[in-house]
């Protein structure tokens, strides 16, 4: 029973990984744009960086839905709704934003 639950969980994580690789990873471009902003302006760049990430995410999500919506059927068939996929993407993006700030703070101190 436990093995089955673990296997199901592992499979879900693999699907999320694939979703990140195929869809959300495009948003890394906007994360990359944030890095020099942070280096130049430090903590003052947090708000502009948030908006860069926010609009970047919205743009990527829109482009994907407009041009590659058909590929969502792969995820639908595996039980992931659009809302759930969006929620996952937002969580990953928020985590990467916080990680970026944390890393930035570390490098500013050193």
């Amino acid at each position: 029973m436990m093995t089955m639950i673990r296997q199901k969980l592992l499979q879900k994580l693999k699907i999320i990984g694939l979703f990140y690789k195929n869809v959300v990873s495009y948003n890394l471009i906007f994360t990359a744009i944030c890095v020099p902003c942070y280096r130049l302006a430090g903590l003052e760049a947090i708000l502009p960086m948030f908006w860069i990430k926010f609009f970047g995410f919205a743009l990527v999500a829109y482009m994907f839905y407009a041009f590659k919506a058909r590929s969502l059927y792969f995820y639908y068939n595996l039980g992931f709704s659009l809302k759930r996929l969006l929620a996952i993407a937002i969580i990953i993006e928020a985590a990467s934003y916080l990680l970026l700030i944390r890393a930035g703070l570390y490098f500013l101190k050193t």
Binding site: R70, Y73, F74, N77, G79
Partner: peptide, 21 residues
Amino acid sequence: QLYTTSGNIRFLPQSGLLPGN
């Protein structure tokens, strides 16, 4: 939304299903 329920349904769309990678 039937597809969100477990073990009920799967659908092969006309446009294809699997990511190329």
